[in-house]
Nucleic acid binder design. Sequence first.
DNA 1: AGTCTGTCGCCTGTCGACAGGCGACAGACG
DNA 2: CGTCTGTCGCCTGTCGACAGGCGACAGACT
Lengths: 241, 241
Amino acid sequence: MQQAVVPDEEVSVAPLSTARLADQAYEQLREMIVSGRFAMGTRLIEVQLAKNFGISRAPVREAMRRLVEDGLVDERPRVGYTVAEFDAAAVIDLYNVRLSLEATSIRLATRRGMATAPLRDLIDRMAAAARAGEQARVSRYELDFHAEICRASGNALIAHLFHTLEGRLLMAIALDNEGQADLQAIATEHTPLIAAIESGDEQAAAATMTGHILSTVKPLILRLGGDPGQLLVPLDHSEPA
Amino acid sequence: MQQAVVPDEEVSVAPLSTARLADQAYEQLREMIVSGRFAMGTRLIEVQLAKNFGISRAPVREAMRRLVEDGLVDERPRVGYTVAEFDAAAVIDLYNVRLSLEATSIRLATRRGMATAPLRDLIDRMAAAARAGEQARVSRYELDFHAEICRASGNALIAHLFHTLEGRLLMAIALDNEGQADLQAIATEHTPLIAAIESGDEQAAAATMTGHILSTVKPLILRLGGDPGQLLVPLDHSEPA
DNA sequence: AGTCTGTCGCCTGTCGACAGGCGACAGACG
DNA sequence: CGTCTGTCGCCTGTCGACAGGCGACAGACT
C-alpha cells in the first residue's frame, strides 16, 4: 500500500493538463500542420475534424481560430479553412520580424543580466538530439532556446509574440526538411550567444543574435529561390564578424 | 425611377460588411474597452454580453477570444474574462516592441519607395480633427498613418502584427486622456516622416521614426510614473537630431 | 463552343441547453 | 477568534441542431 506524502510546505505541482478539449485540439492540429502531415492548401473541415477527434465542433472551432491567428491556417469567411501556404516571400517577411524582435529581446535580456544556465542546458539537449539525428527535437530545443531569451527579456509582449511566431517558424524550418543535415552545427552555433549575454554588451549581443539568425536563414531562402538581400539587419552591423 | 448602372468592366465594390455577428460584437466590445467605457479589471460575462447584444453566446465567445489575443481582455480558464489591466510597465513593453517593428517597417517602405500621398492626406485629416478638438479621431488617424506605412512595407506579417497591437496602443493613449492637449503638434510631428521616406535613406527614416515614437511616449511614461530609460532605441541613434 | 443561369449540396455561422469546475459564503471545530 | 471544510451559485466548456451563404455542376441559350 502506497503511502501518500502530505508535505507541510507548498509544493509546486505540475500544471496537470488544462484538459480543455479546445486546447488539446489546438495542440494536435498545430502539430499535424507543422510536421507536414497536412499538405499546404489542404482544406480543414470542422465537422470532419470534430468527428476524427471524437468531440463536437465548438472546441474545434476555437482551435481553428487560434491557428488562424498563428498564421498556420487561412480562413475565408463563410467558405472554410485551409492549411496556410508558405513560400520564400513569407519566410523573408517572417525573418525580418524575427530579426527585429529578437535583437530587442536579447538586448533586454542582456541588460537584465539573465541567468545563462538554462541556455547551456538547452544546448546540451540540442547536441544530444543532433547526435540521435532527431531533427524535430533539435528544432524544438532551438526554439525553446530563443523563447527562453524572450522570457528573460522581462517583456511579456515579446515573449507572447515570439510564441505566436513559433508555428510559422516551425513551418519555415519544415520547408527545409530534406535540406541540410548539419544538426551538430546548430547546437554549437548557439554558444556565442551565451558568451555575448554574459559579456553584458547589449549591442554586441544583438549583433551576435542577428548574425546567428541570418546565418541559419540565408541558406534556407536561397534553397527556396528567394533573395536574401531582402533581409533587414537591425542595428548597424550589416555583416557580423 | 433610378437607372441602374451596369458597367462592362469590373468595378471594385465596397466590401459591404461581412455581417458576421462575431465581427460586430468584436468591434463593439473593442471600441467600448479602448474608449474606457469599461474600467480596467471589469468582469466581462458572456451571458450578460450576449443578452445585451441580443445575440447568443457563440459569437460573443469568438469576439472574446480575439480580444484576448489583442491583449485587451485577460482570460482565466474556467473562471472568466476581465478587461485587461494596463500600467507603465505594459506601456514600456508595448513601445519597445513598437519601436523595433516600426523601425523595420519604415525601412522596408522607404526601400520600396512607397507613395506618400496617402500619408499627406492622413496628416490633413489629423490636423482637421485636431482643430475640432476631437482627440479620439486624431488618435485613430495617427494609427492609420503608421498602419499605412506598415502596409506599404510589403511585409504582411508586420502589417498584421501592427493591427494586433493597435488595441493596446489605443488603451495606452487612453491612459493619458486627461493629459496633454497638444493635438496640433501631433499632426505636424508626422511631416518629417514623409520627408524621410522620400529621401530614400533607410537608416535616416528609421531614426526619424524611432525619434518620433519616443517623443510621444516618453511624456506618457513619465506621467504614469515609469522610467523612460527602459525604452530601447533600435539602430545606433540613441538621440535623434 | 462558350457563356449565362438556375439548382443542389456542403460547410460555416448561430442558437439554446446541459454538465462541471471554481470561488464565495457559512458553519463547525480547535 | 482563526482556520478548515462543506455547500451553493455562477459562469465557462461542451454539445447537437438549424439556417443560410457560397461554390460546383448541369442545363439552356446565343
